[in-house]
Design a protein around this nucleic acid. Structure first.
Lengths: 236, 236
DNA sequence: TTTCAATGTTAGACGAATCTAACTTAATTA
DNA sequence: TAATTAAGTTAGATTCGTCTAACATTGAAA
């Protein structure tokens, strides 16, 4: 049985490796992500290694072991199922659910999650557009196309976000975006690279940084089999 | 903000005082109820006193302060709302919900509980027949009539149980009882005081100890204004 | 190749929650 | 009232998760 904190460490490791497509991470990076000091992480990594959850050598990078990864995926599954419950059943706005799910994800009961899963109708994506891992731990991050990759005149549909913080999500709300919204890129400012977008007739200017966190699906992409041909055309 | 453990201590204090109708409890009793050693309780009581949650003097009995009581009631409210959710929405049998609710009751979010309360339709009693405290902390234990108080030939309706352990509740299930079941006391063994009861045509023998934990409502009692006239008649 | 900044580790400390073993106080009974 | 038992406390240790301050290693630039 893992402690609350151990679960958070392995969940962070999963985020910092697979969601970024990187093999292993350093102590500092992990510490920054968890909001603790590097020394604390070093201590914890020793414990996690003893429990065979990570592979780690002094002064080296860390990565999850097979069993660590599988436990981390389970935590992530719980997190996303709870988020779905909070939005769909209790009517929470999407920017509020992450924080509460951070607590709920540590509740220990497999039966609870199975029943919640069934109650929700076995959802596949959570309120932020992220895939919910299946019960048997199948979890895969597919490569993502972001708003910042689009050229002027292209349009796309919002399918997810790369940042679940309340501040970011409220910003997303404020430009009128929700999952499924159609986004038209009107122009890109040559001077400062600000992107002018239109959603439901409403025009906004957003930064590169913002656009990097907006995951989209383009009409052309929807017809593609793989990621070979990358030229897409806006068709509005 | 209280820790998980502090919440458990004040919840235990609430149980051991108000549900029993007693002013204050001793260190040993509290320790036994929480499954820790008396020494541990002494340490914790100092901390709880510092936080003004209890009134306590060395070698004396402990009782909740006004603010401690109010926080304890809030934990109890969360516990019972979650139990209601687990039974009504997720279809858990009543003997499984207590343990999971012991974890869920510590989730920190008032908004979560308000929304869950509304989602459930503002329930007043939980799956074990216990009153759910209202949001403003109104909580009161009404005096209870138990199965062991009934005489032969009397009948009554199950309205609650005094023990939420899985072992007890599964026993209750096994004699065919659920909330609302009509119980007929057929006879009481003169020799060993075993009580012979009938539920939906099924006859069982139960002990005094068991019967003490079965809360019932009798037809006569339902017509009473207060607890003045206590003679009740079975009317089957 | 040497130096130095970035990264990471160790040592020692602390608070929370627990324990055991030894001690003290209170209550009961003879 | 004195002795004995029950109840409660203190002291010192342990584990977990964290910190700060000092030290060690790595790797990239001069």
């Amino acid at each position: 049985m893992l402690t609350f904190t151990e679960e958070n460490y392995i969940k962070a490791l999963l985020k910092l490796t697979e969601e970024v497509g990187v093999e292993a991470v350093g102590t500092n990076e992990l510490a920054a992500h968890l909001g603790v000091k590097p020394a604390t992480v070093t201590d914890m990594l020793k414990r996690l290694k003893e429990k065979q959850l990570v592979s780690y050598e002094k002064y080296g990078k860390v990565s999850l072991s097979v069993s660590g990864r599988s436990l981390a995926i389970d935590v992530l599954r719980k997190h996303r199922l709870w988020e779905t419950f909070l939005c769909r059943c209790l009517g929470f706005p999407w920017h509020q659910v992450h924080e509460i799910a951070e607590q709920l994800e540590h509740i220990q009961s497999n039966e609870l999650m199975d029943r919640l899963d069934a109650f929700l109708g076995f959802p596949q994506i959570d309120p932020h557009g992220d895939l919910i891992p299946s019960k048997d731990g199948v979890f895969q991050v597919k490569p993502k196309r972001t708003l910042s990759m689009l050229a002027a005149t292209q349009s796309a549909v919002l399918i997810g976000v790369g940042d679940n913080s309340a501040a970011f999500l409220q910003y997303v709300d404020s430009v009128g975006l929700q999952l499924g919204s159609e986004i038209l890129v009107k122009r890109i400012q040559p001077y400062d690279a600000l992107i002018e977008i239109e959603i439901n007739g409403k025009t906004s200017q957003v930064s590169q940084k913002f656009a990097d966190q907006i995951f989209v699906d383009t009409p052309a992409q929807r017809d593609e089999i793989s990621d070979v041909g990358l030229d897409v055309e806006g068709d509005l």
